[in-house]
Amino acid sequence: MNAAGGSRRSPADALASTLRDGINARGVTLAWLHDQLRLRGNAVSMATLSYWRSGTRRPEGAQSIAALSDIEELLELAAGALTGSLGDTKRTGPVGRSRFPIDERDLEQMVKDAFAALGTPYPDSTREVTTHSVTDVNAQGNVSYCLTRSIVQSTTGTVAAIPFLELSPGVRTPAPVLSAVSGGRISARYSHPSGEVHGALFELESPLTAPETAVIEWSIGFPAGYPPTQETGHAVARQCRELMVWTRFHPDALPDWIEEKIETPTGIRLAPLSLAGRTSIHQVRRAFGPGAIELLWGFGDREDQPG
C-alpha cells in the first residue's frame, strides 16, 4: 500500500537502482560487465547496458532477460534481484523467425505432414520461453522415460493447441506414448508412415493470446518393441531463453563414453563429456535456438560405435 503523497518507482527505475548498486558493490565497470557477457554469448551493447543502468530503457525480450540473469551471477546478486524487478510487459520481445532446428529437409517435410494431419499451421506460432527436459535411462543403458516442462508463449494471435513431436531420423519406431501431465490434454495423435515422426496435439487449458504465457508439462514413454535408444535431447524452432536437458543414468549402467551434440540449421558441433563421479549430466544453453541439444552415450570404445 502506498502512503499518502508517496510514489511508486517504475520497473525501469527499480532495476536501474539495483544494477547501479550491484556494480558499485562489486567494484567493476560497465566495460567489464560488457566483456563478461560477451564471453557468455550475450552480446549486449555498451549503450544498452548504460540505458539499463540509468533507467532510460528497460530490458525486453528473451535475450535481454537471459543477459539479466547472467548479470545477477556476475555481480554476485541474489537470483531474481534484477529479473524480479521488471514487472509485467505486454511486449513479446524479439523472437526471430521460426526455422527447422536441424538441416534435414526430408525430415522437415515429414514434420509438415504431421502438422497438417494434426490440423495446425506450419510453422507453429508459439515459442518455448524456458524448457527443462529430464530423461531417465534404465539399467540396460537405454532411454526409458522423459518428462518435459515448458513455459510457452503465443508470439502472434491466439493459440489453443500446440503440436509436440518425437523424431527418430533414419530409424523406424512404433509410436511412443506422449501424455499430458499438466496444463492441458492430448486431443489428437499422429504417426508418419515412415515411422520416423510421431506426435500429439497438446490442447491448452485456455487459449493464449500474444504475448501471454502458460506452463505445460508432458511426458514420453517407450513401449515394448521400441528400439534401444542411447541418445536424448530437445529441439526448438525459435530462440529459447533457457533450454536444459538433464539425463539421469541408472547407477548400474553408467556409460563408458558420453558425447554432446549441438545441432543447428547451419551445422553440428560435437564434444566429449564426462560424468566425473556423478550419475547424471545436465546441459544448459541460454538464448539458444533454433537448434537441438542432444546427448549420446555408449559402452565400450567410442571408436567402435557407428556415426
Rank of each mutant, 00 (worst) to 15 (best):
S17Q: 12
S17E: 13
T18V: 10
R20A: 09
R20Q: 12
D21Y: 09
G22F: 07
G22Y: 06
I23E: 07
I23V: 14
N24H: 14
R26C: 13
G27W: 13
V28P: 00
V28A: 08
T29M: 08
T29P: 03
L30F: 13
L30P: 09
W32N: 09
H34W: 09
H34Q: 13
D35R: 14
Q36Y: 08
Q36W: 10
L37D: 14
L37C: 08
L39K: 15
R40F: 06
R40M: 09
G41K: 12
G41I: 05
G41N: 10
A43D: 15
A43L: 14
A43P: 15
A43M: 13
A43S: 12
V44I: 14
V44Q: 03
A47Y: 11
A47I: 13
T48N: 13
L49R: 11
L49H: 12
W52T: 04
R53T: 14
S54I: 13
T56R: 12
R58F: 05
P59E: 06
P59C: 09
G61H: 02
G61L: 03
G61Q: 03
A62W: 00
A62K: 05
Q63C: 06
S64L: 06
A66D: 01
A67R: 10
A67W: 07
S69K: 09
S69T: 10
D70V: 04
D70W: 05
I71K: 05
E73L: 10
E73F: 09
L74V: 05
L75I: 10
E76A: 12
E76T: 08
L77Q: 03
L77D: 02
A81Y: 02
L82T: 06
T83F: 04
G84D: 08
T89V: 07
T89A: 05
K90L: 04
K90N: 03
K90Y: 03
R91L: 11
G93E: 00
G93M: 01
P94A: 09
V95L: 02
V95R: 00
V95C: 01
G96C: 01
G96P: 00
R97G: 11
F100E: 00
F100D: 00
F100H: 00
F100N: 00
F100Y: 04
I102S: 00
D106W: 12
D106G: 14
L107E: 00
L107T: 00
L107H: 00
Q109T: 07
F115Y: 13
A116E: 09
A117T: 05
A117G: 05
G119V: 02
G119I: 02
G119L: 03
T120I: 04
P121I: 02
P121G: 06
Y122F: 08
P123F: 02
